[in-house]
Amino acid sequence: MERIPILKMGDFLIVTIQVDMHDRLVTTLQDDLTSMISSHGSHGVLIDISSLDMVDSFIGRMIGNIAGMSRVLDAETVVVGMRPAVAITLVELGLSLDGVRTALDVEKGMILLRASTRRRLTEEDEDGRDEG
């Protein structure tokens, strides 16, 4: 079955969506990501959508869901590379993806993820707990 590959890079998971997503693919990605976050104990998910030339409410909801589920599983989600035309259309459609963090490109997204996990580490250190 067709799947969108998920790469593991240290503490983070990286997904690059490069195909025109049909609905089943969207649902599978959601399942795969959540199970990988939990099995690897990942602290961050980066979704690169720079190749997507449209995001409709279905894909929008998938992104929102992934961010929400990751948060429950103690991971931060960053969506990177949304194209201007896609962003304008999403806003017009009425979706603002509240609660989803964004960055211009993969590099800036990684900086954002590292900063947030570092912050978490320091907080946990102050609490006297160890990261393991």
Binding site: D23, D53, M54, D56, A85, V86, T89, E92, L93
Partner: peptide
Amino acid sequence: SLVDQTKMITAASELAR
């Protein structure tokens, strides 16, 4: 235009679904 294309494709996607 690119924005108009994207809007039309997105609307089509919503309605087709």
